[in-house]
Design a protein around this nucleic acid. Structure first.
Lengths: 350, 350
DNA sequence: TTGAAAGCGCTAACAA
DNA sequence: TTGTTAGCGCTTTCAA
């Protein structure tokens, strides 16, 4: 392993100049920079991250905390964040909390505090004040993706508006009996997503003068299997069957599609189905949905962080910006878009 | 941020003793250890990872390189590895190569060489000799999961045996006309998984005296949509339709299930379907499959690495064990298991 | 079992 | 623009 002195010697400059030439930011003459980079390449020299961190106090590494890894939304956010970080020469250290209770404590009390990361991205995690406080106190900027966090900059779609849009889409097609498959109470812990989406559904109905019918509301667990079971109840019950179903996630909506098929109910002729997400299988199933773009959300989170970590020129180096400035704690709305595919149509006559 | 001196002062010992007491390994009296841990807790002291790394040369961090994050197998391996690492106080730094060509180069030429990780886990990646060589030369142990890598310890199921088992399952039920949906040539780059699985299929047929029919072989891209399209061809073609389909992955098998349904062909009455993986949706679809356990594979990879990183007692501290000892480069077979669900049965009579 | 002290390999003042 | 030098906060000899 060649060290900085080897490079300095070969290039005929001091180690300080090597450091400056390689970091790129500070003023170095072109000729010197060239000599240095050539020497570094010749020796296969790469800056040692920990020596650099110890001297500079910056790690060029960001921590990402997720509740699970094997779910489309979380994995997509991470992919986007990683892409953006790699582009800037940063690494991403992953903390997956799916293991259970004890894990969460050690991650927040040890791993995230040991100065391995410059900042933290929390994905769909309702952090406690304690957890947020610890991070902010040691000066680690924090950004939340997927839901609002008190006192923390947060990126999230407007769940009420998205649900309202999906429901309004069905109403605009002429549907009046519209069921909703929402998330169960146990999934309401994090940011009340199920509750917000239910509100959006109800708001759309009310705006159209359609009464809210409790019988048309079911809950599930955000999976295909859960959506399937809920839809079977909704569609199999004899009597006044709904002509439209709005599911709070595409996975549940796909479950509804499969349930309808198994019951011999044709989509969209007999029932229309709309979801939220634009999940990876949604296109295959021809599901109409309100798309959100988790990869883009991950990139945006990194952009936000970088403004604090690398205040470049126009941004004033506002050290406190992540914890006490006016917009800390603000929820920044991110884009969404209605995508109409084959699973929604006007209700059949009669 | 309290430092080690603060803890030393509060505990009334030297910084060296604090370091020893907290690292746990070296000899420290119980009384001293107690004093130190109490002082550390009182101050909220956590060892600074970079200072520790610079002094010790060890980071307690492992790099994991994946081709994509948003796919069940890769995400599951990472989850397992992370779980095992967290348990040992290690972090996991993720390198996702899905961004494209340039990314791969910088990851291998910069990020992985800058001493941020003690070891590397490569997941389903066919590394070049160059890439492997660089890592090994700077003393970073390397383990591969998902396929054999020349000169590197590798964890993988026996693809030929697994495919043979799945096919033999159909044969044992009485099927003779068995189709295979394999992976296309373009997916053969990494470890020849499609080729190996096809060999297993052919071997099972041959062992049963069943001729191999080219018309019963289709390729797809390992997705549900791809399996759906391939199965439609296989099942829709008039004439001597297969009574069994073996797909090289569960996702393609699920596609086949959906295709059969759309064609009005009943599973398993008219056609049986079996896959490989035990993917997360397989149970929901009642798919028979040969399960592999990627989470467990991730944990095993960590176990293997730890033997080199933390030679504890019985293991001799064999520094070269990952690169030049007898079993470096050996492929370690990992468990798999046939799971019979509702998608396979004896062929209908006549 | 404990303490003193010498680095680990860089970066950032400061000076030139 | 470049060089000199003093740390960054730990771990690990070595000596006691």
């Amino acid at each position: 392993m060649a060290g900085i002195d080897d490079v300095a010697r070969l290039a005929g400059v001091s180690t300080a100049t090597v450091s400056r030439a390689l970091s790129g930011s500070v003023k170095v003459s072109d000729a010197t920079r060239l000599k240095v980079t050539e020497a570094a390449d010749a020796l296969g020299y790469v800056v040692s991250s920990y020596a650099s961190s110890l001297a500079s106090g910056r790690t060029r590494n960001v921590g990402a905390v997720v509740p699970h890894l094997n779910r489309w939304f979380f994995a997509s956010v991470i992919e986007g964040a990683e892409r953006a970080l790699l582009r800037r020469g940063y690494d991403l250290t992953l903390y997956n909390l799916s293991g259970g209770g004890e894990e969460r404590r050690t991650v927040f009390e040890r791993h995230l505090l040991r100065q391995r990361v410059d900042a933290v991205i929390a994905i769909s995690l309702e952090l406690t004040d304690e957890e947020i406080g610890r991070l902010l106190r040691i000066g680690k900027p924090l950004v939340s993706v997927g839901g609002p966090l008190k006192g923390v900059r947060s990126l999230s779609i407007d769940d009420v508006a998205v649900a309202q849009l999906a429901t309004a889409h069905l109403i605009a097609l002429g549907h009046r009996r519209i069921a909703h498959i929402g998330g169960g109470r146990e999934y309401d812990l994090d940011f009340h997503i199920p509750t917000s989406r239910r509100h959006g559904y109800e708001r759309a109905l009310t705006a159209a003068g359609i009464p809210i019918e409790p019988a048309l509301y079911r809950t599930a667990d955000f999976t295909i299997a859960g959506g399937y079971a809920a839809a079977k109840q909704l569609l199999g019950t004899p009597g006044d069957r709904p002509t439209g179903i709005f599911a709070a996630s595409d996975e549940m909506a796909i479950g509804a599609l499969l349930a309808a098929r198994d019951l011999g109910i044709s989509v969209p002729h007999d029932v229309s189905v709309v979801g939220i997400d634009d999940y990876e299988l949604s296109e295959f199933f021809g599901l109409s949905t309100v798309a959100q773009f988790p990869g883009r959300q991950g990139e945006l989170a990194v952009d936000l962080l970088m403004r604090t970590l690398e205040p470049s020129g126009e941004h004033q180096p506002d050290a406190a910006s992540m914890s006490s400035s006016a917009d800390a704690g603000a929820t920044i709305p991110v884009p969404y878009e209605l995508i109409v595919r084959g699973s929604t149509a006007a209700p059949a006559l009669g």
